[in-house]
Write a protein that binds this DNA or RNA. Structure first.
Lengths: 199, 199
DNA sequence: GCACGAAAAGCACGACCGTTCTATGAAGAG
DNA sequence: CTCTTCATAGAACGGTCGTGCTTTTCGTGC
């Protein structure tokens, strides 16, 4: 691998971690360069613009996310175990040391929801993929007979993500020590409701 | 009322609207001044610092929130109707024209979750009040016999807020036209589960 | 080992940031 | 009407932002 590509990768790793703390807007070229011991212009040369940096940060974070959350879950048994593994994986991800500032996607979602542009597009696509992944896992659980036939899997994915967002809020903003217990209880209720036929 | 206090109020109104779009960090003194046709220093004189401006923006938003969401719900019948009214009120709030950028508290939560200081403290206190309000409404619903005796009302408040966060995400970031329908379905499931005794 | 190309540094720019100081205008009290 | 107090404007500050341009350093294929 070329030297440049290596530092490029190193930059992105640090950038992801930094962005999880200060956000994608708060992520400054100068600050990032200093953290890495590089010059501002030297770092800038790797990206033609700040927007491009933001996009690549989101893409890099997506790669890590897939590797750390999605792939391990794919190793689990099809159906409910995999659905639970995705949830557990996400909880781990949000608590991960790599993301001192909490899930970078949640932070970016609030920043970019009214800021059209490539960064927003990249984020939305990633979130869509993630929601599709959750829905697909639920669909498999239906096929396996773990979840009821008539389950609206997109709704299930949406609800699962809501629980995650609630966890993030309780944990990171409210510093609620019970955050994880609450999230697990909420998710269990969701799974239970998905198992039993419509009442 | 003094002339100064009047403009002070006008500034805050505009600031809340602007902050809902660009966030509390993105809210700049200069930009806000221009939007109001004031000079930067003239506006600044009303607040000793930007932090103080942020705090007052959050407080002003809380006042409006209480007036528009909480108070109307207090006019509803005790118990489940009031719980539902709080939820409906929040959906209206999030869609309100006053907040073109979506709920300012959700945006601020992501920005401030790792930024200790007066602004964060103010936000956390406001969110705590809101969650307490939701829990109290649920508690009354238990007392009225609408919800089951053993219901964990704090958990219910937490779950209700999670649904709201999920709605915000689906609506504002994903631009999902079904966002509101999904949120209502999720909330209905929550209420149904709260009604029936533990299964 | 040398030459060439890539990578990083250095420097400068215009713009905007929050903040301070000073001057000027208008509002209100007597 | 006058005098004082308060509200706003104007100009400037040091700093940081993203972004170019030029130069130097360094990795690498021949």
């Amino acid at each position: 691998m070329r030297k440049g590509e290596l530092t490029h990768q190193t930059i992105l790793e640090t950038a992801v971690r930094l962005a999880s703390r200060v956000g994608l807007q708060g992520l400054s070229i100068g600050g990032l360069a200093e953290e890495l011991g590089l010059s501002k212009s030297g770092l800038f040369a790797h990206f033609k613009s700040k927007t491009e940096l933001q996009v690549q940060v989101l893409e890099a974070a997506s790669v890590v996310f897939t590797e750390r959350v999605v792939r391990p879950a794919l190793g689990k048994a099809r159906g409910e175990p995999r659905v639970r593994a995705l949830f557990d994986g996400w909880l781990t991800w949000d608590r991960d040391a790599l993301l001192e500032g909490g899930c970078i996607f949640v932070a970016a979602a609030a920043e970019l929801d009214d800021a059209p542009g490539p960064a927003r597009d990249t984020l939305v696509q990633g979130q869509r993929d993630w929601l599709d992944c959750l829905a697909q896992a639920a669909r498999i659980a239906v096929a396996e007979g773990h979840f009821r036939e008539a389950l609206d899997v997109e709704q299930f994915a949406h609800d699962q993500y809501s629980v995650m967002l609630g966890f993030h809020h309780a944990k990171r903003l409210m510093r609620d020590p019970q955050a994880e217990a609450r999230a697990r209880r909420a998710f269990d209720a969701l799974v239970t409701a998905a198992r039993t036929p419509t009442s």
